[in-house]
């Protein structure tokens, strides 16, 4: 009943290509996270401090990012915008989709983080003569970052794994590349098994790096 013959050789031959693709995966995930953190922080601040249409827009962003499948968000930037004549490269589609999604999730994390820092910290800072900007950048945000650090790590892992959706919009990141080779050689199981290991190692490295960084950053 189990007469499948494993053929690892083709996988090993294309391993350099897979590793290149893995690098692309990591690159797009990191970029999406950096942009997502900046935008997410802005979205959180807008939702907490502003009124009117801009706040409404920010809320829509967060709701859409969190309440719809990430795949549909990618499709929107791919086929959705494409329908209106705006054609992004596969790389840009994945980057935009992931950024959109990460920013939405991170905005909620940041909002929780800001709520967890007592208002009195801001008052104490201001009472020392700090400007609002100084109080935020020196006192409030560093504390928020500690609170959201582990959620951010989670989101980073999620971004790496989510980038595999890229293969559905023709992006040859790790999954796309795997699919490409697998369908050419029909060694589907072997390719995806190896790719799973590569994903696993990437995520493991991220988690280890995150833990090391945390012990350096947070001594209190």
């Amino acid at each position: 009943m189990f007469d499948y013959n494993f053929h690892w050789r083709p996988v090993m031959k294309s391993l350099p290509d897979l590793l290149d693709a893995a690098f692309l995966t990591l690159q797009v995930a990191v970029l999406a996270m950096v942009l997502g953190i900046i935008i997410g922080l802005c979205l959180a601040l807008i939702r907490m401090h502003m009124k009117g249409p801009i706040r409404w827009l920010a809320s829509c962003w967060v709701e859409l990012a969190r309440n719809t499948p990430a795949l549909f968000q990618l499709f929107f930037f791919g086929f959705g915008l494409g329908a209106f004549g705006l054609h992004l490269s596969p790389y840009m589609i994945v980057l935009a989709g992931l950024t959109f999604n990460c920013a939405g999730y991170l905005a909620e994390n940041f909002r929780g983080g800001f709520n967890a820092v007592p208002d009195t910290q801001l008052r104490a800072s201001r009472s020392l003569g700090m400007t609002a900007w100084q109080a935020y950048t020196r006192i409030v945000i560093p504390q928020v970052f500690r609170i959201v650090y582990h959620p951010i790590t989670n989101q980073m892992v999620w971004a790496v794994l989510m980038s595999s959706l890229g293969m559905l919009v023709g992006f040859r990141e790790l999954s796309g590349e795997t699919q490409f080779f697998a369908s050419r050689t029909f060694r589907i199981f072997e390719y995806f098994a190896v790719t799973a290991v590569i994903y696993y190692v990437i995520v493991k490295l991220i988690l280890i790096a995150s833990r090391l960084l945390a012990t350096r950053l947070f001594r209190y």
């Binding site: 007592p118 009195t120 910290q121 008052r123 104490a124 800072s125 006192i139 560093p142 504390q143 500690r146 947070f218 209190y220």
Partner: peptide, 8 residues
């Protein structure tokens, strides 16, 4: 009253 030391 809440001494508000900066924890970080």
């Amino acid at each position: 009253q809440q001494w508000n030391s900066f924890p970080h």
